[in-house]
């Protein structure tokens, strides 16, 4: 049984078809990178998995369980989400950003949640920032906190929506390093990214999307170094300069 199964996923915004039938499985411990041009539907696909966008058609299974309107809140606790714009809670300290989910959603003990949060902050290298507010952190630091916040819920899979796209170039590395270490520890990850280097190094599988379809998929070497489809070659020639 796959960790994530996507079957016949379609999504339209009004008349605009963004996803035109996506089928994809993600296995436990697998790192899937989704690449493609802007507007290809890759972020929408990711957001459909945890239903931040409601699919127009198709089904998503997590751990074999169909995700629907009724079980979405509990299903989301299995899926950590990291956004392009971090979306930390600005009125909460870094530590509270990490504990707000476990304490309120999982009804976890406050003290235990805080201890765990500190371990996670150590893991992303920001233990000394626990008492700070997000506005006092750099973009890279904020995104590392956002990753830790998602991890605090003990998710089974992590969804990354262009996690480095809003960062200054010199901060991209520190975020990618955290993601690499997660991958190495066996976390199941779906990553929408423009970082081809990261995809090559970390991904088990890469899919190239365009126009709402999966155009090509395979190992990073297959898709990124030896693409078969013209559309993929064209895209890669523009990004891999």
């Amino acid at each position: 049984m796959s960790m994530i199964e996507i079957k016949g996923l379609c999504k339209s915004f009004g008349d605009h078809e963004v996803l035109r039938g996506i089928d994809q499985n993600v296995e436990e411990g697998e790192v899937l990178c989704i690449v493609g041009p802007s507007g290809s539907g890759k972020s929408t696909m990711l957001r459909c998995i945890n239903r931040l966008e409601e699919p127009t058609a198709g089904e998503i299974y997590v751990d074999g369980e169909l995700v629907n309107e009724g079980n979405i809140d509990s299903m989301r606790t299995k899926m950590g989400m990291v956004f392009q714009s971090f979306n930390l809670f600005p009125h909460k300290s870094v530590l509270d950003n990490l504990t707000i989910g476990p304490i309120n959603v999982k009804k976890a003990d406050k003290k235990e949640s805080e201890e765990k949060a500190m371990k996670l902050l150590e893991r992303v290298g920001l233990a000394e920032k626990a008492g700070e507010y997000p506005r006092n952190l750099s973009g890279g630091q904020q995104q590392r906190v956002a990753i830790a916040r998602a991890l605090a819920m003990d998710p089974e899979v992590m969804l990354f929506d262009e996690p480095t796209s809003a960062l200054d170039p010199e901060m991209v590395g520190e975020v990618l390093d955290v993601m690499k270490s997660l991958a190495k520890d066996g976390m199941t990850m779906i990553v929408v990214t423009h970082e081809m280097g990261f995809a090559k190094e970390v991904a088990d599988k890469v899919i190239f999307m365009d126009g709402g379809y999966i155009v090509e998929q395979g190992t990073p070497d297959d898709v990124l170094n030896h693409p078969q489809m013209d559309r993929t070659k064209d895209f890669l020639s523009k990004v891999l300069i």
Binding site: R76, S85, G101, V105, A146, M153
Partner: peptide, 27 residues
């Protein structure tokens, strides 16, 4: 309030009401 705040709260598994109460309304 930026709509990313609601999305971040919901993606932690909060219900709409809980997200309003803990994240949106305080801001």
């Amino acid at each position: 309030i930026d709509k990313g705040q609601m999305e971040a709260a919901r993606s932690l598994g909060m219900s709409h009401g809980m997200a309003m109460r803990l994240v949106i309304i305080p801001q």
